[in-house]
Design a protein around this nucleic acid. Sequence first.
DNA 1: CTGAAAGCGCTAACAT
DNA 2: ATGTTAGCGCTTTCAG
Lengths: 344, 344
Amino acid sequence: MPAPTIATVAELAGVSTATVSRALQRPDKVQPQTRERVMAAVRATGFVPNSQARNLRSRASRTVILLVRDISNPFYLEIYKGVEEAAVEAGYKVLMGDARNDDERIQHYIDMVHARHADGLILMVGRFPEVLKAELGRLPPIVIALETFPDLSLPFVKIDNVAAAAEAVEHLVALGHRRIAHITGPMPETLAVDRLAGYRRALAAHGLAPDEALVVQGDFGLAAGRAAVRRLFETGTDFTAIFAASDQMAVGAVSELRARGLAVPDDISVVGFDDIVLADAFEPPLTTIHQPRFDIGRQAMARMIGLLAKEPGGEDVVFATRLVVRGSTGPVKSDFQLKRRRRP
Amino acid sequence: MPAPTIATVAELAGVSTATVSRALQRPDKVQPQTRERVMAAVRATGFVPNSQARNLRSRASRTVILLVRDISNPFYLEIYKGVEEAAVEAGYKVLMGDARNDDERIQHYIDMVHARHADGLILMVGRFPEVLKAELGRLPPIVIALETFPDLSLPFVKIDNVAAAAEAVEHLVALGHRRIAHITGPMPETLAVDRLAGYRRALAAHGLAPDEALVVQGDFGLAAGRAAVRRLFETGTDFTAIFAASDQMAVGAVSELRARGLAVPDDISVVGFDDIVLADAFEPPLTTIHQPRFDIGRQAMARMIGLLAKEPGGEDVVFATRLVVRGSTGPVKSDFQLKRRRRP
DNA sequence: CTGAAAGCGCTAACAT
DNA sequence: ATGTTAGCGCTTTCAG
């Protein structure tokens, strides 16, 4: 037998299809006893409304695309969880897209909004997609999460990266470190720029002269952390601590330091950023900046729902971060120069 | 102005809407020059087909739900990537659902198939959902990935867990270990059962007597790895190596061993399962079983696409795994008992 | 090869 | 409060 439609239910309940629709969508618009008859018929037939027909008519898909920079980064998992939970509660679906910094893929996901596969876009990508710049006038509903694009005034949910980075560096300074290296994110993305600014601000606040040799560019990935440490050694730069703009890079840095016979934190202290799931299981447990990922996800989706419902309110939110001090940072060692010479 | 529809294009091209539809869907069914006129009109209007209207008519959603056991496990990321890539290529979308071992959530995702939000289900959950058992006769298209449910004959993509687990244990035996503990997955799920079977098979193959005190149940999560080690100590069980049924548990176990003053691999060797992204950045780098996650994801989606297209073929696939030997395993130490007494 | 016309299953507008 | 009617935008017969 074919799947029951609204007409099947209407016939069985002895009402019109419009009444069935109303009983299901706006129960208060129909008399209790009629509603009960309809509900009984729904149960009897096992009717499930066809969402496509409904969406076609109501011109909505009740789907949101979460477009992330790089799906391989476990950082996004907790965010997705928050987004998904808020979505399910509100009867929305979430498609997660992997931007891979690839314009073609980004275009693909944006086209999906035009093709009515999705109603809106939660962006967590490093730069504002070129394809969207072309049509700034008629953008689909967009919420920016974590990232920011200074020129645009779009609703956002984020953290204060400058302050968080400064806090991380303050922590190292308080431990006596003076030669603090920084592994940045991919410049000139705002995330990377802001964290670098926080690093510089903290140094300046303590009268420490900036040294460009201490700043190495990365891309948030594990391999970049390793490469950055290699580079610091190649340039013969002295340092006793590293502030990495992501945990993945911090982990890579620790791994490379160790390969060169240096101990963390005994020889070099390392601070990360993100507090990924395995940060506290790592050896040594990683000192890092914790972000309330789940809440960020939930809030981003909540804003999106407000946007789609054309509700007036909706405040941009800046979430608080906190420094989590674990085992990868310790007091500076004065005999570092000696140890350094031992390396192969 | 409202979004252009197929009628807008038809008018501009001076053809009927049916011809526009054909030019777009089955270009070979329309004369080259007509097609060119249509395409020009499409470009001129910026027309994007409304997927909802199309799907309503063609009774498909071109969407697949990937239902995973626990989204927090980074293990699934690479699988998702594989699924998503195959999906995008074939014009499909992927919704990732978090089962959380919660029947209500699972029900929610299954309802989505009935409501035509999705065409099929790729299952990566520990047990076959109760809600589906009730309707074994008219199941939606389902592909089982990684997991297996012995009673059901559904298309699957998996690895040989028994053989892989046996290989892991063989490796420990070859290093001289005789007292090898095993931290299982959640019993009685097939994944956990199979890996335990592989562990036992390898022991038996070398004439090592099974000892139930060496087997501790876990749930694949980090905390379970820690708890399992605590339990081994509480029961006063002797062991020189651990085979954990997941990397997350292996990491938890290492962390707990270290907290008790034991070194890995000097005092205890540890083998994991999965080869998660951070496995080789971990200290010590984790010896583990590598699974071709991306390919498993791709293949699962490929099978689903075949299923939906009602193509005849479609072979069940068993992917090869491989043992990756890193730093967390080493030769057994004979003075282990002595060290053991030093612990707090 | 192309056009006319009939829906897919639902909801919104307009009646009553 | 309920019913009637008219589509949403597309694909798919069926004719020609």
